[in-house]
Amino acid sequence: MRCRDIELVGACDTNPDVAAHLPVGIPVFSDVDAAFTATRPTMAIVATPHHTHFAITERLLRSGVAVLKEKPFALNVQEAHRLAQLIDDENGFLRLAVQRQFSKVFTQAKEALPDLGALRHFEAVYHLNTHPYGNTWRGDEKQAGGGAMLDMGYHTLDLIVSYFGMPHTVRAVQVPGRTGSENLTVEESAAAILEYASGLVGRIFLSRCESSKHESLSVTGTEGSLTVAPGIFRRRDKTGEETEVRTESRSAAGAGGEVLTTFLASMGDARIARAECLRGLQVMALTDALYTSLRGKAAVALPPVDLPSSRGGAALAGAS
């Protein structure tokens, strides 16, 4: 991945072997404070285990550094509100590297939603066949925050909030997994029903232990339907006839380059920063409700989600 508008000034990792994957001469630090003092960056990418995100991000934002951060927005809903307040207090700029928000076909699908008429139902599926992770931080709830729903499923939940807004009620169940690891303290698979004030109903299935990888979102309205997946978007009218097909071909490096280029172009835009923060709070509120429903084996109603008010949160308040 290359970007002409960025000069890489350093990396920070507990594993010194990462130096072998960087251009010659780029320093590698094992301590965030030492890295910041030596390099004085204007932007930073945070791609570390989830439980380390907040402390690193706080150090950067309080120093005026723009942050491009891996998902999730936070480890839990309480930390999400702390992060939102920090961004507000420091007038900070933070965006998440949720690649579907930067994908042309997923953007085109969102723009086509009004053509479907009144939305009736949707189904979101995302499953992987991951390597054993029971002995890694991803298998530990305290470090990862969650499994199929918060970790890989964050991409799907972020997309759902972006497309449809916040549901008023959710019901989630844990689906049996297959790893059998005694050290695993997160869910491997989960399913849920989401209900909206408009009457829209959504179904989601998220899993890290299936035989293959699959990701898709299908939406049906009174006037037609659409399906979007990585690389392709299809739309049909209400008779089922295909009316539009859009495709997108990009490598993982190309996708990363688009995220980085878009981030640079938006740096300093306060409205984008607020919208990103609000969506992060909404996704974390949705995730929290799903986990509450899963543990309590009951439907959970979602409260309204707002930004801190001092920088115009009321203007971007999320409807439940």
Rank of each mutant, 00 (worst) to 15 (best):
Q78G: 01
E258A: 12
Q108R: 09
Q78H: 08
R100V: 06
P303G: 09
D306A: 15
L294S: 13
L302S: 05
R4A: 15
G240P: 03
R236Y: 13
D17L: 14
H121I: 06
L86C: 05
C277Y: 00
D151F: 10
G221A: 02
L260H: 05
A275V: 12
G25C: 14
P167I: 09
T185E: 02
P308M: 13
N135H: 08
V24E: 15
R311G: 09
D31G: 08
R271H: 05
T48Y: 10
T185F: 04
T185W: 06
L278K: 00
G318F: 12
K142Y: 08
A20L: 11
E195F: 15
H21V: 13
N135R: 03
G268R: 11
T39F: 05
E70N: 12
G147K: 02
G146A: 02
L60M: 14
P304M: 04
L307V: 11
T222H: 05
V125E: 01
A289K: 07
F122N: 01
D89H: 05
E215A: 12
L290Y: 03
L194G: 01
R279W: 04
L200Q: 11
L307E: 09
H53T: 01
F73Y: 06
A35D: 03
G318D: 13
D31P: 04
T247K: 09
L22P: 05
T14F: 12
Q101S: 15
Y154T: 06
L116A: 00
S225V: 06
A112W: 05
Q108D: 11
V9P: 00
A109N: 08
A319K: 12
A289Y: 07
R295K: 10
E215K: 11
A55W: 00
G134E: 03
F36Q: 06
V105E: 07
L94H: 06
L75R: 10
S309Q: 15
A314I: 14
A66Q: 07
G10K: 06
G221F: 01
Q78C: 07
A66C: 14
V24F: 15
V245E: 10
A275I: 08
T185C: 01
F36A: 10
A55G: 03
R171W: 15
V228R: 02
K110R: 13
P176D: 05
D237M: 00
T179M: 05
I204E: 00
V77R: 11
H214M: 11
G224Q: 03
P49M: 09
P114R: 00
D17P: 01
A34T: 12
R62M: 05
E258H: 10
H131C: 08
G254Y: 03
G177Y: 03
G165H: 11
D31C: 10
S266M: 10
D13Y: 02
A265N: 13
E215F: 12
A44Y: 00
P167N: 11
S162A: 13
S63R: 15
K238P: 04
T185D: 02
G145I: 01
E58P: 02
A270P: 07
T136A: 02
L286M: 06
S266E: 15
S225M: 05
D306E: 14
V46F: 09
F29H: 12
T287C: 08
A55N: 04
H131Q: 15
P41L: 05
K110W: 02
A301P: 02
L184P: 00
V228D: 03
G268E: 07
V228Q: 01
F233L: 08
G312P: 08
L290M: 10
N135F: 09
